[in-house]
Simulated scan of single mutants.
Amino acid sequence: MLLTERDTPEGTLVSVCDADVLGETFESGEVTLDVTEEFYGGEAAEEAGEESVVASLKGATTANLVGEECVGVAVDAGIIDPDRVLDVGGTVHAQLVWL
């Protein structure tokens, strides 16, 4: 999994994707999901295991996740409600906002 943390004026933004979906575009009806190198990869991204992903998500203000593995990790950890996971053209996507 590729993990990126960014400090923003609104708090910490975390992006996580499975390595095999980086650079892919998924479509479902009017919804298009671009898993761009700029947002999910790049120099700031690091390979991360389950523990690192869970710890990062727990410290995030907002997060975006794409791919079966990383979304599954977040669901298994009780961070993402499985009923709120979106199926977008052959992959899964979840967003997280802590209020």
Results as ranks from 00 to 15, higher is better:
53 V>G: 10
44 A>E: 07
9 P>F: 08
41 G>R: 00
17 C>R: 02
68 E>P: 05
10 E>P: 00
49 G>T: 01
72 G>Q: 03
25 T>S: 08
99 L>Y: 08
32 T>K: 03
54 V>R: 11
46 E>L: 13
17 C>A: 12
28 S>G: 14
77 A>G: 11
59 G>K: 03
61 T>P: 11
93 H>M: 04
67 G>L: 02
28 S>A: 14
37 E>V: 04
61 T>Y: 10
74 A>L: 01
98 W>R: 15
93 H>S: 03
32 T>N: 06
58 K>I: 13
82 P>G: 11
45 A>I: 12
55 A>L: 03
69 E>F: 05
92 V>S: 00
42 G>H: 07
20 D>A: 13
93 H>I: 04
96 L>P: 10
62 T>D: 11
44 A>I: 13
80 I>F: 04
31 V>K: 04
26 F>H: 05
71 V>M: 09
63 A>P: 14
34 D>K: 02
36 T>Q: 06
27 E>K: 01
95 Q>P: 01
13 L>M: 06
76 D>W: 05
99 L>T: 12
73 V>E: 09
69 E>C: 01
2 L>S: 04
9 P>K: 08
15 S>R: 00
53 V>E: 11
86 L>P: 02
14 V>Y: 02
2 L>Y: 08
70 C>L: 03
56 S>A: 15
46 E>T: 15
90 G>F: 06
6 R>W: 06
46 E>R: 15
2 L>T: 01
94 A>S: 13
91 T>N: 01
61 T>R: 15
83 D>N: 10
54 V>E: 13
62 T>F: 07
21 V>R: 00
51 E>K: 15
33 L>V: 05
16 V>A: 00
62 T>C: 11
17 C>D: 06
57 L>E: 12
70 C>A: 05
94 A>G: 15
3 L>E: 01
13 L>T: 04
94 A>T: 07
6 R>V: 15
91 T>V: 06
74 A>P: 00
11 G>A: 02
13 L>Y: 02
71 V>P: 07
57 L>A: 03
78 G>Y: 00
72 G>A: 07
15 S>N: 05
76 D>Q: 12
24 E>N: 03
71 V>F: 04
88 V>L: 06
35 V>D: 00
30 E>Y: 11
48 A>Y: 05
41 G>A: 10
10 E>D: 13
85 V>Y: 04
50 E>Y: 13
40 Y>S: 08
36 T>C: 02
81 D>H: 04
36 T>S: 12
50 E>K: 15
9 P>R: 09
91 T>F: 03
74 A>Q: 04
71 V>L: 05
45 A>M: 09
62 T>Q: 13
3 L>G: 09
42 G>L: 09
43 E>L: 13
89 G>V: 07
11 G>N: 07
88 V>K: 07
85 V>S: 10
93 H>G: 04
87 D>S: 14
46 E>D: 08
72 G>R: 11
77 A>F: 05
23 G>C: 06
14 V>N: 04
44 A>H: 12
19 A>F: 06
21 V>N: 05
63 A>D: 14
5 E>H: 01
98 W>Q: 10
